[in-house]
């Protein structure tokens, strides 16, 4: 058995999701290679070279591959796979990068991908969350190559103390797609992203209006936290849609999730239940959120939040 990890990067640096994916690959078999596709990859290659657990790194560094256009990446990865028929597993992080790309590789090989694995049971059996993590499916692939995307938060990143052999790959005759890249607007926020934050503080309908979310900002600053909201708060127009945490919003798994004025609707719980610790503040002691919380504080958030900010 031999696994190939598709590297997620921005041409300069490697995304941590890649290191978690290498860990997942190492749990399947001992022989793990990595493939990095992009343009002007020197710094990125210097970084991925350090990853423990890799046997070899293949590099496709080519003009026109500077943006992660799925059409371009997939054709190059498929051309590479055509030259190597030894891979039994191809793993990609289950980030927007991997979700966009990996099914294209699988489809061209007429293989059914398994999305978002959270556990490796054996070389063809995996666990993955369904219904936003409200159930766990154990699935077995009968395909000749297992094509997997890996939920990064479920695998510790590999260590970075190696110096792995690197080979440049020249692929002839792989055309570029006519999809054109227009722009990338990086989120300007000084706060971490919801899906990768270690700490998240979210407000619900109990915040009463959008202005009151300022009460959460100071606490978020002190904790280095991302800010989120329940669907009720988004539907009420308190905060923008992309703050929404829950089954139909962002599924999060931070070390600490602080729910403020959130009652704990099923669809919200579905999005936060993989958090290591959940702390909640709500004045209604019957609120369902308390049943899912490690620490609950029954109190009026307007009194508690300023005190919390001061004492942190």
């Amino acid at each position: 058995m031999k696994s190939l990890v598709i590297v997620e990067h921005n041409n300069k640096s490697i995304k941590t999701s890649t290191f978690s994916t290498i860990t997942a690959a190492s749990q399947i078999c001992d022989s793990v290679d990595a493939l990095i596709v992009g343009n002007q990859l020197k710094e990125a290659v210097d970084e991925i070279k350090k990853a423990n657990g890799l046997k070899k790194i293949y590099v496709i560094d080519k003009d026109g591959l500077n943006n992660p256009i799925a059409e371009n990446l997939s054709t190059h990865i498929l051309a590479f796979l055509k030259t190597k028929d030894e891979y039994t597993h191809v793993l990609t992080p289950s980030s927007t990068f991997g979700k966009n790309l990996s099914p294209k590789i699988a489809t061209k090989l007429d293989i059914q991908q398994i999305s978002d694995i959270i556990k490796v049971c054996d070389s063809d059996t995996f666990e993955r969350p369904i219904y936003a993590g409200n159930a766990i499916a154990k699935v077995k692939s009968n395909e000749k190559i297992k094509i997997l995307t890996v939920r990064p938060t479920c695998f510790e990143p590999c260590g970075l103390t190696s110096n792995v052999e690197v080979e440049n790959v020249n692929l002839e005759g792989v055309d570029l797609s006519s999809v054109s890249f227009v722009a990338y607007d990086e989120s300007k926020s000084d706060r971490p992203e919801l899906t990768s934050a270690k700490v998240i503080i979210s407000g619900g309908r109990g915040m009463q209006n959008g202005d009151n979310f300022k009460l959460l900002e100071g606490i978020a600053d002190k904790l280095g936290a991302a800010m989120g909201a329940s669907r009720a708060a988004v539907d009420a127009g308190f905060v923008p849609n992309d703050w929404q945490v829950g089954q139909t919003g962002k599924i999060v798994a931070p070390d600490l999730y602080v729910a403020v004025g959130i009652s704990g609707a099923i669809q919200h719980i579905a999005g936060i239940k993989d958090s290591k610790f959940i702390a909640s503040i709500n004045k209604d002691e019957e609120a369902p959120i308390f049943k899912f919380s490690d620490y609950g504080l029954v109190a009026d958030l307007f009194e508690i939040l300023p005190e919390l900010e001061k004492k942190l």
């Binding site: 766990i136 499916a137 610790f277 002691e285 004492k311």
Partner: peptide
């Protein structure tokens, strides 16, 4: 082509505690 072997409940979260004030919340965290 991918068989579902079984579907199970996710691990339950262990029961939490209600704390009395901000100080004990911070202390626990």
């Amino acid at each position: 082509r991918v068989e579902t072997i079984e579907v199970s409940e996710p691990p339950e979260r262990k029961p939490g505690v209600i704390v009395n004030d901000v100080d004990s919340l911070i202390d626990k965290l």
